[in-house]
Structures are given as structure tokens and as C-alpha cells.
Computed example of a mutant assay.
Amino acid sequence: MFLFRRLSLLCLLALAACGGAHDTGVPPAPPGVLFAPDFGDSDPASFNAPRPDSFAVHGIDAARFQKSIAWGEARASGVNFAFIKATEGGDLLDTAFQEHWRAAGSAGVVRGAYHFYYFCTPPEDQARWFIRNVPRTPGMMPPVLDMEWNPFSPTCATVRPPGAEVRDQMRRWLRIVEAHYGQRPIIYTTPEFYRQNGLGQFDGYEFWLRSTAKTLGEVYPGQPWKFWQYTATGIVPGIAGGVDLNAFNGSRSDWQNWIARRAVR
């Protein structure tokens, strides 16, 4: 049954693409088609309800660490959206961004780009760097500001401002980027960073939240959310190695309505 389902989906994609979506740029399935998730997990967690598989629309986030993605096959396996890492700080461009952005778009995957924030560079410089490298593409998801402590940077690892300053810097980046793309950005964060910096104070912003062992209601009590990053060890046909998996908070029709309202024009 599994093999038959996979072959049927791949045949649908091949017909819609007229042979070679990656080369022609033609989406392998009509826009708006949603595929059910056909994912695995090399280290699955035992979640309380609601479990990630209770949500209808799933996707991934990708960066240079995902060196090989057959985006058409991944979409057929349930990758309906992808957040793609674009920039870090004020001068770093993810080396895989341009290729992931192009290929995901050619496969008909709904794309969004995210910026990994550094505390040793002014937010205005970081906002301009993101805008310089991420094209304002009609149909893309709102831009994402990725807020978490960075223990690996040789210059920024020890820079940890107090919560009020963190929130001020975030607001400065968010205002500039919203003005350019015409959509209010999404905030991504982790449990530790969220608690330590009072990110629950960002009323009116949609959140993409990480929690790989407990439900978001348990980890971020009372916090509304739009996307849930529920594992870093996902297994997806068409993607070499592990990948982050994400669920959208809503039904299929909720997803279509959200995209209609929140996509960049």
C-alpha cells in the first residue's frame, strides 16, 4: 500500500510537470494542492495530545546542512511548505539559500525565508542584509526572525543583552522588514529564549515555536502559535539525512485562508 501510494503521487507530479520541474521551473503539481505527510523520524518523541500527526498541513525548514533535496519528491511526501534559512547577522548568506529557494519554488512548495539574529550587529544592518538577499517574491510566506542564543559564534556567543534590550532590537528589525515585504514577520524561538526574554509580550505577532519533547501548550502555556517545529530528526523521502519537521496550526482550509491573507504580494 505504501509503495502504491508513493508511485501514484510521483506519477501525478510527473504528469503535472510535463517532465522535469527542476529544469523548467514548472511546478510539479497545481498550486494549492496539499499532500498528506508521509514522514518518518529517527528519534521520535512520545507527545501528549495534540500530537503533531493530528495536524493536517506539514512542512520543513532547510539550510546549508540539507545538502541534497529532491524538492518534487519531498513535496509529494507531504512537504507543503518550507522555511529556508537566508541570512545571519549583517554579512552572512547561507550558502544553500539561493538553490533551495529556486528549487522549492519550482516544485510548488510554499516558501518563506528566515534570518538568524546576532546580538553584535545593529538590527538595522541585519534587516538591510536580509532585504538585500531575499527577493520580495509574490506568494512567499511572511519573513521570519529567528531568535535564539548563539553559542557557536566566536564574536557573539557571549553577548546576551537583558530582555528589554532584546525586545527593543527585535522590534527595530521587525518594523523595517515588515515595511519592505508588506507583511508582519513571524517570530521563531526556543523555550529558553522565550522565557528569558519575555517574548510573550509580542502581541499581534504570529509565532513559530520549537518543542521536540512536549506539546507547545505544555512548554509555552497560553501562547498562541502558528507553526510547531516538533522534531530535528525527521526522515522525508527526497531529503538526504535528518531534517526539521513542522506542523501548521489549523486545518487544510485554515491553511488556504492563511496563505491567501498572509502571502507577500
Rank of each mutant, 00 (worst) to 15 (best):
F207K: 05
L199K: 14
F152G: 02
T189F: 04
I186M: 13
P191Y: 07
G163L: 01
V219G: 00
A179W: 05
T158W: 07
W149C: 01
I186E: 05
G222V: 06
G182M: 14
M170T: 14
P161C: 12
V166P: 03
R184H: 07
P191H: 10
E148T: 01
P162I: 03
R175S: 11
N150D: 14
P224D: 03
R210V: 08
R167T: 08
F207C: 02
G200P: 14
I186T: 04
V219K: 00
C156Q: 10
W225G: 01
Y181H: 02
Y220M: 04
P221W: 05
Q223F: 01
G163V: 06
I187E: 00
E218K: 08
A164M: 02
T189D: 01
P191I: 01
Y181N: 00
G163H: 01
V166H: 03
I186Q: 04
G182K: 12
T190K: 11
W208R: 03
G198C: 10
L209Y: 05
N150Q: 12
T190W: 02
P161E: 02
R184E: 07
R167H: 11
N197C: 13
G200C: 05
D203Q: 15
N150G: 04
V219P: 00
I186D: 09
A157L: 03
R210N: 12
L209G: 05
S153Q: 11
V177G: 08
Q201K: 12
N197G: 06
A213K: 15
P151G: 04
L216P: 04
P221F: 05
V219M: 00
E178C: 00
G204Y: 06
Q201I: 01
G182D: 14
